[in-house]
């Protein structure tokens, strides 16, 4: 006899796949999303120094990227800023999420609104504001300014998954921990942080990706010595579109795909443990 399953018929209001344009639209959307990426990867192996004219296969642009001091310096700047801003913003977001637990309902809604609003504010406004602010309080443009600005705009992103995880947690294990003799500090270390870990990891990754990817704010704040990779790439394209840009972009693509895969595998190991 087949094992008893509890599968329920899936409820659909409308079965969209029956509509005549469903297939065509799906294909068009997927092509629109992924073809540009494929083109970037494809042309990164182009021998020709004009990016869009294919003349033959070559690794020379990768070689160029790996031996270009300006690119390496920009990459280093980006990584330093992203790592520091990720750590700072994730810690601050974690503190905010835990702090909000203790607030009265109205205060919590207000605090969450204040911390979440930058997600909806156009970044150009934030960037102009940040630049003006730094000039007013005389923070020199450069690494420190970049880290401060990135930390600030990463907080709402880091907060999103942490809060979602926190909201999904049952109160019972915390009560059980108190009942078993754990004080607040022990509960935080032994129960809260381990249970929040997936949210914290997701928040940190999101913050890292947002920081690494940021252009507008970095463009305003970086100053001459602290050019980040996106700002440098923008400069490369303005002067001369060579396949080097494509090679660099492909490397970034591989980097983020590897990171995603690592997180996915990490989660699977944790779950099966």
């Amino acid at each position: 006899m087949s094992p008893v399953t509890t599968s329920r018929p899936r409820r659909r209001l409308v079965n969209l796949s029956n509509f005549p344009l469903f297939r065509g639209t799906s294909i068009a959307v997927l092509v629109g999303m992924y073809l540009p990426l494929l083109l970037v990867v494809f042309y990164s192996f182009n021998q020709n120094r004009l990016a869009q004219i294919w003349t033959g296969f070559s690794f020379k642009w990768y070689d160029f990227v790996f031996h270009n001091d300006d690119i390496l310096r920009a990459l280093k700047n980006s990584l330093i800023v992203a790592v520091v801003a990720t750590i700072l913003s994730t810690l601050l977001a974690l503190g905010a999420a835990l702090g909000m637990l203790r607030m009265a309902r109205s205060g919590r809604v207000f605090a969450w609104g204040l911390l979440g609003a930058p997600l909806l504010i156009p970044e150009i406004v934030l960037a102009v504001g940040t630049l003006g602010f730094f000039l007013t309080i005389k923070v020199p443009l450069g690494h420190v300014a970049l880290i401060l600005a990135h930390t600030a705009f990463c907080i709402p992103f880091a907060l999103l998954p942490i809060r979602a995880r926190l909201a999904g947690l049952d109160a019972a294990p915390f009560e059980a921990a108190t009942d078993l003799g754990a004080n607040e500090w022990q509960i935080l270390r032994r129960i809260t942080l381990p249970l929040l870990a997936p949210g914290i990891l997701a928040g940190a990754l999101l913050a890292f990706a947002i920081s690494l990817d940021d252009f507008i704010t970095s463009f305003f704040i970086a100053g001459p010595g602290a050019t980040t990779l996106p700002v440098y790439i923008f400069g490369m394209i303005r002067s001369n579109v060579t396949p080097a840009v494509n090679a660099l972009s492909t490397l970034l693509l591989i980097f983020s795909a590897t990171m995603l895969l690592a997180v996915y595998l990490l989660n699977r190991i944790r779950r099966s443990d």
């Binding site: 019972a172 059980a176 009942d179 004080n183």
Partner: peptide, 19 residues
């Protein structure tokens, strides 16, 4: 406080630590 009382509870939902 609860953590200092010599009493312990078996909760309705068991409240085990999932991790």
């Amino acid at each position: 406080p609860a953590y200092a009382r010599p009493v312990n509870t078996v909760f309705q939902s068991y409240a085990l630590f999932p991790h």
